[in-house]
Simulated assay, not measured.
Amino acid sequence: MPELPDVEGFRKVLTSCAKGRIIQRVDVRDTGVLHGVSTRSLRDALEGRRFTEPERHGKWLLARTGGPTLLLHFGMTGRLVCSRPDDAVEAHDRVLFTLSRDRQLRFRDQRKLQGLWLAHDESEVAALLERQGPDALAVSREEFETALSARRGSLKTALTDQSVLAGLGNLLADEILWRAGLHPASRASDLTEPDRRRLYTHMRRALRSAVTAGCVPPRDSWLTGHRDDPAPACPRCGTSLRRSRMAGRGTVWCPQCQ
């Protein structure tokens, strides 16, 4: 599933492919990815507009136009692709934004679990994002500690709850908790101040590295580099990793380090 680093990568695709360019044509090949807007309304709102500087909040991408804002959420399998209009259209290309004779932005998504929304003004943008917590890459340490201390559930559940902190998914949460030496089932409200500070520091470091990579990288020195091994072992101490499910998510941790 795309997490904050992936969506930050999609923001860069949107910037390099479409920023400053006029949307000449919008082709909706599958209305199943549109939420609260029809094909005609989407075309009327966007055609002739120019993409400006895009923004990201958590796992949401905001494609600004100086007027209406297109909001994209990528679900499990969504992505943005910069193509040429004459490139073969793939089966999962759901919406095409033609920008010039040689430039086309494509929303590609196999499972269609999320999709596209249109906000006509900032109040509609705010309404769509009202359940989102602070962005994990921008949150201050004070905001982070306050958000966690108010939670009663498990630490893993708190980190992946988008209303608490926007942007972290399953892979990042496991990676950050492993780095911080904290068990995913521990209660968020039971963390000490040093625990919360250590967790925040490791979150920031993991996010910076992952954003640079454009994904949560499966590096040998990372937990994510070993979670899918046939016999996964901790890259720090060599102990066999444990697996379980928490809040419906596959969770991996080291019983020695955490």
Rank of each mutant, 00 (worst) to 15 (best):
M203A: 09
S240Q: 14
R242G: 07
Q132N: 05
S149Y: 00
F144H: 05
G153L: 01
D135H: 09
W178D: 04
D190N: 14
V164H: 01
V139D: 03
L172D: 05
A173K: 02
S209Q: 10
A150Y: 02
C215N: 06
P232H: 04
R243W: 13
L223Q: 06
A173I: 08
R187P: 00
L177K: 06
G181A: 08
A138Q: 09
H202Y: 13
L177T: 06
A210I: 09
Q132M: 12
T212K: 13
R242E: 15
G248M: 13
R236T: 15
P235S: 01
L155S: 02
P230I: 06
G238M: 13
L129C: 08
T160I: 12
K156M: 05
T212Y: 01
A150K: 12
L137K: 10
P194L: 13
T212N: 13
P194C: 04
C237Y: 13
L171R: 12
G133K: 05
D195L: 04
R219A: 09
R243C: 13
R249M: 06
V211G: 03
K156W: 05
K156N: 03
P218I: 05
L177P: 06
C215K: 07
C215E: 10
R196I: 03
L182E: 08
E193C: 06
S186G: 14
I176N: 12
E130H: 13
V164T: 11
P232I: 06
L165T: 04
T212L: 03
T201M: 08
P134F: 00
A213W: 00
T212W: 08
F144G: 00
P232D: 06
L207I: 05
A206S: 14
R242I: 11
R141S: 04
A136I: 01
E193L: 13
T224V: 14
A166F: 11
R242V: 08
G167Q: 10
W222A: 11
A138Y: 09
L159M: 10
L148I: 07
P217D: 12
A206D: 07
G214A: 06
T224P: 00
S209F: 05
E175T: 12
R152C: 00
L168Q: 04
R196P: 01
L223E: 07
A150F: 01
A138F: 04
L191E: 01
L129Q: 09
G238L: 10
A147N: 02
S221L: 04
L177M: 15
P218S: 10
V216T: 10
G248L: 12
L165Y: 14
G153W: 07
R245V: 15
L177D: 07
P230W: 11
V211F: 07
R204T: 11
V164P: 04
A206G: 09
R152I: 02
L171H: 11
V211Y: 02
E130N: 14
G248S: 11
A213C: 07
A158P: 00
A180Q: 01
P184I: 02
